[in-house]
């Protein structure tokens, strides 16, 4: 099995949280495993609750899988502003391609 992948989450106030994530799980699951606040993931990764929203401003979009129609629809319903770089982190897999990537968290809803 491949070694862990380093990914980062950046809060709306600019704080960076660096974590080691197991390849094959989702970015959402990696966030949950590392207690990253702001990723709620109420539905557990079924692409239906839109509570694992991240912005991928600083990631080359070609390194990420294309949005499915389903993810695209769900992104319309995220808390916080939808931007062109918005993704649901439950739909993104941890792999070598996103080594070092920074995922930006939306402003907290509460």
């Amino acid at each position: 099995m491949d070694g862990p992948v380093t990914i980062r989450f950046e809060t709306s106030t600019g704080e960076q949280i660096e974590i080691q994530a197991r390849p094959g799980i989702s970015v959402m699951e990696a966030a949950i495993m590392n207690n990253v606040e702001g990723i709620e993931a109420e539905c557990g990764g079924s692409c239906i609750c839109a509570t694992c929203h991240v912005y991928c401003d600083r990631i080359d979009a070609s390194l990420l899988p294309d949005r499915t129609a389903e993810e695209d629809d769900m992104l319309d319903m995220v808390a916080g502003e939808r931007r062109p770089t918005s993704r649901l982190s439950c739909q993104l897999r941890v792999n070598d391609k996103i080594q070092g990537a920074v995922f930006i968290l939306p402003e907290p809803a509460f």
Partner: peptide, 27 residues
């Protein structure tokens, strides 16, 4: 843990037990 995947992704082997956790154990 999340219960909905028990009859689906967990049973099919697509998700392991760690991936079902509602929160990390040290949370």
């Amino acid at each position: 843990y999340h219960r909905p995947p028990l009859s689906k992704a967990f049973l099919s082997g697509e998700k392991d037990e760690e991936q079902l956790l509602l929160r990390a154990p040290d949370f």
